[in-house]
């Protein structure tokens, strides 16, 4: 009466190779970088003395969002020097997330582990490097492993926890949060798309009208993924800002 063949999970992640060393994830990553660069180039070419419109308005709004919504909220005025890096991170992640709901592409590049892993390791290197640069090697690890105000007897407990949470868990949590959220959204969309198709094509015609239910769910989830794509980019970026701010100014 009703048959649904759900593909294996690694099958829904299979992207045809465009070239031996380039697949769709690579294409999306390159396209994300190119789109961002082109948008900013077009924005900088407009007359800055006039009220911004179009692409310049979009670019300036993004810059102000990162400055006011992320940097000022987490690092304060001292952190404004980090705006270009955080802006790049936010824009790149968002543009890698967005293809999850773009027809034909229909998969976020961040639903594969590579890009979240690279960005998380980069952030790990940067916040530890920034902490060492500002406080010195000893000073940074002292502030991380021996937080001030803690009774000395508790260091035996607190120091391993701080080491694990700050040095080991942070990059994994950043990586897995982004990857898992985007992969879960992708699997949900695939599930409801397949279910809709199976119901619409069921041999028993009584089941056909019920195909609209998963289809409506699919439409709702597609809208939801628009929000998730933005939210995950924002969360990754704001956590990066928090980690850098904490490493540079441990007293905060």
């Amino acid at each position: 009466m009703f048959a649904l063949e759900f593909p294996p999970i690694n099958e829904i992640l299979r992207w045809r190779e465009v070239a031996p060393s380039l697949n769709k994830v690579g294409i999306i990553a390159v396209a994300a970088a190119l789109i961002a660069i082109v948008v900013f180039i077009l924005a900088t070419r407009q007359d800055h003395r006039k009220a911004p419109t179009g692409v310049r308005n979009f670019a300036e709004t993004t810059v102000e969002f990162v400055e006011n919504g992320i940097v000022m909220q987490t690092m304060g005025r001292d952190g404004l020097g980090w705006t270009p890096f955080l802006l790049s991170l936010f824009v790149f992640i968002y543009l890698c997330n967005a293809p999850g709901i773009i027809p034909i592409l229909q998969m976020p590049a961040t639903a594969r582990m590579a890009i979240p892993a690279f960005l998380s390791i980069l952030v790990w290197v940067i916040y530890n490097g920034a902490g060492i640069k500002h406080q010195g090697f000893g000073g940074y690890f002292k502030s991380v492993l021996f937080p001030p105000g803690v009774p000395k007897a508790l260091y035996a407990l607190v120091t391993p926890i701080e080491f694990i949470s700050t040095i080991i868990v942070r990059p994994f949590s950043l990586m897995v949060r982004l990857f898992a959220n985007m992969l879960a959204g992708h699997i949900l969309l695939v599930t409801f798309a397949l279910l809709s198709e199976a119901l619409f094509q069921a041999r028993d015609k009584v089941l056909v009208p019920f195909g609209v239910l998963p289809m409506f769910m699919l439409i709702f989830l597609t809208g939801f993924e628009v929000l998730v794509a933005f939210l995950q980019a924002y969360i990754f970026t704001i956590l990066t800002a928090v980690y850098i701010g904490g490493a540079v100014h441990p007293e905060h």
Binding site: S21, G26, A29, V30, A33, S88, V91, R112
Partner: peptide, 14 residues
């Protein structure tokens, strides 16, 4: 290859 293209793209853009 995804690490390479993703990382390279981000670094160039950044």
């Amino acid at each position: 290859k995804e690490l390479l293209w993703g990382g390279l793209s981000f670094v160039v853009m950044a």
